[in-house]
Write a protein that binds this DNA or RNA. Structure first.
Lengths: 207, 207
DNA sequence: CGAGGTGAGTTGACACCTGTTAGGTTGACG
DNA sequence: CGTCAACCTAACAGGTGTCAACTCACCTCG
């Protein structure tokens, strides 16, 4: 081992220069996101583990966050914002509401597949880090409601966009969460399931 | 405090008589199920916590389980079997496949609502306790496939029962998991969502 | 140029919790 | 009296969040 006696952490990472102490803050958030990605559970993201991964001593965290739970809260919001960005660019991919909807669905599934840990923490964890959890989540859901409203408008369909959005979201969430949690089951292809969703909910262009 | 110096656990629970050492085994499984229910995460179910809740010293666990993970595995299978029983009696509630189906849906949602912790661990946790996880889960899913096959039969519907069962299960799972994880959101009533599911998937009796 | 202040981070220690092992203790039965 | 099931105590090596006090390099001021 390189460490003296098997217990001291390496402490790589150079000290930030004078004015830029905030760079460690974002490094810690990235490190926390990595740990979330790796374990898919908030309990595994200990303060010390985050500091270790950032190459910094545990107490350095206290310079940037009051507390362990505030570190976690900031890390979760960090994940929400990257998810929101991904969904927003997908929503803006086309003027055709049906194409944009499908694009959002693909982006949603892609996020869940590529970052299962983050997805799990965002959508399927009690998180419970106090106050109004997940403003980023609400913003993302609003994107979905708007997209569905545009489709229903184009179809002359009188259904409530919010209710349909709940249907769509719960269904998609069930798909990715269940497939992700039980990968040994013989699941159908996700594209097939997404097609089935559009069809069952009658969210296809009239042709 | 009653404890000598604030640290020793009480150790209630009388010693089992000669032949009946297995009673502690089931007590430990119940205690583990309680902890799963309380925290909804497997990480919170430490060997010591289970022993504490059963009123027994930590090392007593080793008389009945090889290991911490084997304790957890047995506890999860314990939960699966109670879930399966609940679903099976619901499925047998009526000869009318449509009534039986709705009964199963209600039972599923009821289990998820009444025991959110267990539900979460069963359906939405990586668990990953080795080998073929959750034989109880497969049995329960088969109940759903059979019920749906009966309905499609009655409808003369040529769809694949397995595929429809996946659709139903993913959707219901998404509903209960999302509603359970984010209780502050203004969700519609679950009965309304269940009705929407039956309607969207055209699983209603012709009238 | 030297003195001091301060931002950025470190060491060391605390009290507590974890899984696991080794070696008791208790008490009923043969 | 001995045996043996059922359990216990003590201890280990490691992990955790958090506090108090320290270092070290840079920046400014006189």
């Amino acid at each position: 081992m390189a460490t003296p006696s098997g217990s001291a952490p390496p402490l790589t990472r150079p000290r930030s220069p004078r004015g830029e102490g905030d760079t460690l803050r974002t490094d810690l958030l990235d490190a926390a996101a990595d740990l979330i990605a790796a374990h898919g559970e908030m309990d595994a993201v200990s303060l010390r583990a985050v500091a270790r991964r950032a190459g910094v001593s545990a107490t350095a965290v206290y310079r940037h966050f009051d507390d362990h739970v505030e570190l976690l809260r900031a890390a979760v919001e960090h994940c929400w914002s990257t998810f929101y960005d991904q969904l927003r660019t997908a929503a803006a991919a086309s003027d055709d509401p049906f194409v944009a909807f499908r694009s959002m669905g693909d982006a949603y599934v892609a996020y869940a597949m590529e970052r299962p840990g983050q997805y799990r923490v965002l959508f399927s964890d009690k998180v419970d880090l106090g106050d109004g959890n997940a403003p980023g989540g609400l913003a993302a859901f609003q994107l979905l409601v708007d997209g569905i409203a545009a489709m229903l408008d184009a179809l002359g369909d009188p259904r409530d966009p919010f209710f349909v959005a709940v249907q769509v979201h719960t269904w998609i969430h069930g798909m990715v969460d269940l497939c992700g949690s039980h990968p040994s089951m013989p699941w159908p292809e996700t594209t097939e399931l997404l097609d089935g969703l559009s069809e069952a909910l009658r969210l296809r262009p009239t042709h």
